[in-house]
């Protein structure tokens, strides 16, 4: 697979094991994601998706090899690297007691934005994600879909160059999914690299250009989605997934 654009993410010979676990979660794993890509990372439960994203975002520390985001090494709490990306975790990652605006004000400040920028970005995001009417209400009173939009807004308030999305649309209605996916496509058009992981494979087909399938800590396929479907003679990402990872249950303990 040839990459024409400069790299957004460069993972080389990655080795990682959880403390107290003798088995390596990853061993000599390599992955390159070009700038501006819409990249999807898929795999069964326990395959290592969340661990890999945690390593890329610095939540976990690399044991061997290295991970670079836009040429900068991901390390323990590296503020220069942390400014480059946004992270939308699967769990609601904000203060439920605060309103949307209050959450955006706080997280904007922690992203290093000034007061004016926060105000402007808050107004834009409230408008784009349809949260203007409820901007001053406590988030804990919101529906699941509204909370997903707040979760997304916080992760993109600083206009990140790379956006990590872990199941960003789980449990939302069709309207919210449509709004979120459209917004992500819009962000990508403006240059943000998307790293997306989800079990919603039909949704992923509409969003991702490049995909990687991961199982048991190894990348078992990585290429352009259309090319992969063609190579493996599959008509959908779901069938490709089942073909490569099998139909057995996975018990992720």
């Amino acid at each position: 697979m040839a990459l024409n654009n400069p790299l957004a993410i460069d993972i080389e010979n990655l080795g990682f094991r959880y403390p107290g676990n003798s088995d390596l979660s990853f061993s000599k794993l390599n992955l390159k994601i070009a700038k501006g890509e819409r990249f999807g990372l898929f795999g069964p439960n326990g395959a290592g998706k969340t661990t890999l994203i945690s390593l890329m975002t610095g939540l976990l520390s690399v044991d061997e090899g290295h991970i670079k985001l836009l040429g900068k090494e991901v390390g323990k709490k590296n503020n220069q690297v942390n400014k480059l990306f946004g992270f939308i975790p699967q769990d609601f990652s904000f203060y439920q007691e605060l309103s949307t605006v209050e959450n955006l004000e706080f997280f904007g400040a922690w992203y290093g934005l000034n007061r004016q920028t926060i105000r402007k970005r808050t107004d834009d995001l409230l408008h784009i994600l349809g949260l203007e009417e409820v901007k001053d209400k406590q988030v804990q009173k919101f529906s699941g879909g509204m909370k997903r939009r707040v979760n997304l807004a916080i992760g993109v308030i600083h206009n990140p160059k790379i956006l990590f999305l872990d199941e960003p649309t789980v449990g939302v209605d069709v309207q919210t999914r449509y709004a979120i996916i459209n917004y992500l496509l819009e962000l990508n058009k403006n240059g943000t690299t998307l790293v997306y992981t989800s079990h919603q494979l039909s949704e992923a087909e509409g969003l991702c250009e490049q995909v990687a399938l991961i199982d048991d800590g190894k990348i078992i396929a990585h290429d352009d989605l259309d090319k992969l479907l063609k190579d493996y003679r599959q008509d959908s990402l779901e069938h490709l997934f089942l073909n490569l990872t099998g139909k057995d249950f996975r018990n992720d303990v």
Partner: peptide, 17 residues
């Protein structure tokens, strides 16, 4: 233990703040 902490750990600000 809340989700907000995961995000805080990825932000360019030390939790000491």
């Amino acid at each position: 233990v809340s989700g907000s902490f995961i995000r805080l750990k990825t932000l360019p600000t030390n939790y000491a703040v």
